[in-house]
Write a protein that binds this DNA or RNA. Structure first.
Lengths: 362, 362
DNA sequence: ACGGTCGCGTAAACCGGTTTGCTAAACCGC
DNA sequence: GCGGTTTAGCAAACCGGTTTACGCGACCGT
């Protein structure tokens, strides 16, 4: 009696029931292979011993984990408080649960994403926001696990889930132009790896680059230029948005409208506007991106670009499982989702008092 | 060449390097046991073969997974969009990463939490919001995995992380009483398992019961009664808060102040108030619970009860790892955190127009 | 020259399941 | 009564690592 109540193993059950290990295994996994009386007997003994098959041993033998991983280059503590990520993960969870798959999060371990990937016991990986220029990208792709990329095309041969960032951004800018706005500030999302000093649009595949292209395309179609110093970036959080708008204001920017690349940052900008004594939308229009649940609950409710956050998550699961089953490595075309503008209360006609002088030319 | 580029195993590396499997294992795990030249040679061969030890096999042999699980009775899709949970998980992630532990989420699989627990490959479980009356509680506790309970004492022998719910709730109610409020509506969190019809305070250990006790204690200390029909419950979401306040209003409740048991629901109540034409705080005061990051960003900023969400997560990790290392099953005293009221802009003196008649009596 | 210690590596057991032949008995039709 | 097919269950290999126990030659002191 020296060993403290060790958990019962399959061998214990087999011995107690007077059968072989194989029989016990069959009793649970392929009961048809056994006489139904025997199955019943084995099961009874098993529950009597409170036997529960060790999931790790099962994983090893079956060479599958029934788990999918969500990979992000950012640390989990920032990820979990990012509502965009929450809604995306919510979609992943829905589809994963339906497929009987567990969920694991993969994020840099002691600074190394590759190390985390090597440790991960998953059948497939959904990588979100993985920059094309991530330093460990080569190491990561070498792992033989099926990948799906979300919001990026960093691994050209893997399936990707994308949205029409440029189109959505263009719609947002067009909307503001139609309301008479001419002076914009853009609040972008800083690249995860790079410091504040680095150019956030260095990688043309990065979301900030894509959306900025959309804003500028629409603006220049309206004869307006969005200069580089009207673009500020920060982390994709409410605080990041507040700080960014304050910084732009302090640098002398006096926009009539703000184009924020995430709703979280737009909410932060809402606060900054309040702090600057500007009413939204009377003095300043703000439009976000993502159409989070919370965009409906701000005051005023947020005008924003809708993208199907949960649906992207569900589709990712579908793709990664599909990839895991039929292992043909032939590249697939990216899966695109449409975006569209949702007009709520945070945008309005440009205030007459702040109309541009050159607005009357032509 | 029939087998498609199978991943290299330890045996492959051993053969290629002309050593035994044990040597390869040592080269990575206990290099001191080998001649350093040999280590270097083995490592070179290994990287040449792009060898990466199979984490599952390693888990089996070492009998530990280097993973901790976060267990919730709710489905993950609702959990991931719950900001309270996000902040808590954020704390868990911080401490887990520091300890080199991965994170896995455990939630009901095809309706069964016990099944999910059995499948989970974790060294310890942090269970949050597990009701004392959960139908599978007996099955769950039988698993030999170390547990830590958060916001509940459903398993009396396991360590628990708690906050002073009653005290915080009392502080909120007292604050409102001091502002002259006499008519309240309480917005509570419905029990996860039970339907809408069930009594949300049936379990005295459930968070709604604890906080309600606090509200009522403070109220009755001020000579005020909070009747049962002034208590409405719903899911702990913004939408749940909106719906709940509308329902109370439709039932004839005309409060001057709302006590919401979560900030998410308070934000929803903020919206409901707007829809009812009530200004906050001029016409209606609202106080939340949790002090989420976002409570600073609402308009008006939310008066709420602070609890250390992230810190609770970090402490949980510490406890569960501690429990896993020294396996003495002796019960520990619960770890309590204090709560305190944070007064911001959503509460004010009761509007004179809506003052109670009996407010003048003595 | 000899027993003892040290340094380096190996063989084999082990972790706890699944799965692949294979055998022995029962059943079948004729 | 006999070949052929099922049925029921077993033994052993296997999944891919870790770890224990031991072998062996070199070195050491005497």
């Amino acid at each position: 009696m020296e060993q403290a109540t060790r958990r019962a193993t399959i061998a214990d059950v087999a011995k107690a029931a007077g059968v072989s290990k194989a029989a016990v295994s069959f009793a649970f996994n392929t009961p048809d292979r056994l006489n139904s009386d025997t199955v019943a007997r084995i099961r009874k003994v098993a529950t009597g011993l409170d036997y529960r098959p060790d999931p790790v041993a099962r994983m090893l033998a079956q060479r599958r984990t029934l788990t999918i991983g969500i990979l992000t280059p950012q640390a989990l503590d920032v990820i979990f408080t990012n509502p965009y990520f929450g809604e995306f993960s919510s979609g992943v969870a829905t589809a994963a649960e339906a497929a009987g798959m567990a969920l694991q999060f993969i994020s840099p371990l002691h600074g190394s994403l590759a190390r985390a990937v090597d440790r991960a016991t998953v059948d497939g990986i959904i990588a979100v926001g993985l920059g094309r220029d991530h330093p460990e990208i080569a190491h990561i792709r070498r792992s033989s696990i099926p990948f799906v990329l979300v919001d990026s095309t960093a691994l050209p041969n893997e399936p990707a889930v994308l949205v029409d960032d440029e189109g959505g951004a263009a719609a947002a800018a067009t909307h503001l132009l139609e309301l008479g706005h001419r002076r914009f500030v853009v609040i972008g999302i800083e690249a995860p790896s790079a410091g504040l000093s680095a150019d956030p649009t260095a990688d043309p595949d990065w979301v900030t680059s894509r959306r900025l292209r959309g804003y500028r395309a629409a603006a220049s179609a309206g004869g307006i230029d969005i200069p580089d110093d009207a673009v500020v970036v920060g982390p994709a959080s409410m605080d990041g948005g507040t700080t960014a708008l304050h910084r732009a204001w302090a640098a002398g920017q006096r926009p009539t409208a703000v184009l924020a690349m995430s709703d979280a940052m737009a909410i932060g900008a809402l606060r900054a506007a309040r702090e600057l004594g500007l009413r939204v939308p009377e003095d300043l229009s703000i439009v976000g991106f993502d159409d989070l649940d919370i965009a409906n609950y701000t005051d005023p409710p947020l005008t924003t670009v809708h993208q199907p956050n949960r649906q992207k998550g569900e589709e990712s699961v579908r793709l990664v499982l599909d990839r895991a089953h039929r292992r043909d490595t032939e590249p697939e075309a990216p899966h695109y989702f449409a975006t569209h503008l949702v007009v709520r209360g945070s945008t309005a006609f440009v205030p007459p008092s702040r109309q541009e002088v050159f607005d009357d030319r032509t």
